[in-house]
Computed example of a mutant assay.
Amino acid sequence: MDSLLKHMVDITGHRDHAMLDVAVISAVHELSAAKQTRVLSQVEGANGPMIRQRACIAGSSATPSTTSPGDVPLEQIAALAACLASHGASASATTDEGDSVLWMPIWIGEKAETILEIVRSDQFAADMVPMVVGIVGVYRNFQNLLDYSERDSLTGLLNRKTFDGQLSRMLQGGGAEALHAPTAEERASEAGQWLVVADIDFFKSVNDRFGHVYGDEVLILVANMLVSSFRADDRVFRFGGEEFVILLRSATSEQAHAIIERFRTNVAAHVFPQVGSVTVSLGYVRVRPGDSPVASLGHADQALYHAKTHGRNRTCHYDDIIATGELQLPASNDTAEFF
């Protein structure tokens, strides 16, 4: 009982999803005497749903791993696929090695984007599953609380505070708090992570001409287009006012530009109720572990400002405008303020 209470205190003491994952698998791993415990994500791949490892603890290791070994098609895990299709509470199977596996989806509404997986070398005891169910319930409720505190109330996007934390952790370079632990395929490619800033052009005139109700509707519709234009694993934030920020992961320079341009053209082609045509300008820069958050934001902002002052409704890459001499490389940007 003392050990269970200690773990409950640890789980509820976190204000971050990544560290919450680590606390939960540490608790379940110890209390169920598991061989391996993992937090998995269900993500959309090019050919259907995929399962991605988010955190893992194995054997007697005291340090959970957040390195992903690579995505696995959901259809290859038949018991879990059937459980998710039927909105089931759990699924179990026996591996070829004789291990017992228990999967417990974390249902939030109609979605189960998070799955807890527990592997034991023998069968689960009768009193063990209710205990794990209780921990999962606390985990689900606390995920809901974190989601609520991390979201912008108007658009439903992640908020500025969440962005500040995620960018800082990403640039610190990995560990349990990394935004994304790259797969082996991603490490072997030229893929990188990108910081994108977007601003609605002439948004003040929308509010002045049509009122704040229509201005809010434009913000909501642009936020929806951000979500649909970028990928499920990218992070989209409302930075404030008519400004948005995207953390785009695992894309080459050409892929990043194509994804960003897809969003820009989607907005330009959309007919907004009453307002009509709306456009966005965007600036982006590649970010790497060890970069300064302030400098990275400053570089993306400079690219956005360049787009704003050179016609609007365009996308500018910071490195490109530096290379062409359109923007002079500053001696230092570490004290720059974003927007």
Results as ranks from 00 to 15, higher is better:
46 A>E: 15
227 V>G: 01
1 M>D: 13
326 E>N: 13
79 A>D: 13
204 K>I: 03
171 L>A: 08
327 L>V: 13
246 I>R: 12
35 K>H: 12
50 M>A: 11
175 G>T: 07
317 H>P: 00
324 T>I: 02
124 F>P: 02
70 G>C: 10
4 L>G: 03
9 V>L: 06
6 K>P: 00
246 I>L: 12
42 Q>F: 09
318 Y>M: 00
81 A>M: 07
92 S>A: 09
241 G>A: 08
154 L>H: 08
214 Y>V: 04
290 G>P: 00
250 S>E: 10
107 W>K: 03
176 A>K: 11
187 R>I: 10
48 G>W: 04
328 Q>K: 12
37 T>A: 12
8 M>W: 07
306 H>M: 11
336 A>Y: 07
36 Q>F: 03
226 L>H: 06
119 V>M: 02
17 H>T: 08
38 R>I: 01
75 E>M: 08
171 L>V: 09
273 P>G: 01
75 E>N: 14
187 R>L: 15
38 R>E: 14
70 G>P: 12
247 L>I: 14
282 L>Q: 11
254 E>I: 10
336 A>R: 07
30 E>K: 11
301 D>E: 03
296 S>T: 05
54 R>N: 15
93 A>S: 02
97 E>P: 00
208 D>C: 06
19 M>S: 15
56 C>G: 01
151 R>M: 08
204 K>Q: 07
263 F>T: 08
51 I>F: 05
172 Q>F: 13
315 T>F: 05
237 F>I: 12
42 Q>N: 12
41 S>H: 13
127 D>E: 12
212 H>Q: 05
158 L>T: 06
173 G>V: 05
105 P>F: 09
53 Q>G: 04
272 F>L: 04
187 R>V: 14
272 F>D: 03
171 L>S: 10
288 R>H: 10
315 T>M: 03
238 R>V: 09
314 R>C: 11
12 T>Q: 14
327 L>T: 12
313 N>P: 03
20 L>Y: 09
134 G>P: 01
304 L>Q: 02
114 T>P: 04
314 R>M: 02
13 G>P: 00
303 A>Y: 04
173 G>D: 01
132 V>E: 00
250 S>M: 05
186 E>F: 05
33 A>C: 07
141 N>W: 06
135 I>E: 05
318 Y>A: 02
90 S>P: 00
225 M>H: 11
10 D>R: 15
107 W>M: 05
149 S>F: 02
146 L>H: 11
154 L>T: 03
225 M>D: 08
106 I>C: 14
120 R>C: 07
24 V>W: 09
25 I>S: 07
67 T>F: 14
258 A>G: 06
144 N>Y: 09
332 S>I: 00
60 S>C: 09
248 L>F: 12
151 R>E: 03
272 F>Q: 04
327 L>A: 09
117 E>C: 10
9 V>E: 11
235 R>V: 09
289 P>N: 03
180 H>A: 14
182 P>E: 05
79 A>W: 05
115 I>A: 00
44 E>R: 06
319 D>L: 06
112 A>V: 00
234 D>K: 15
147 D>V: 05
81 A>T: 10
329 L>N: 04
70 G>F: 08
284 Y>F: 15
26 S>E: 15
20 L>P: 06
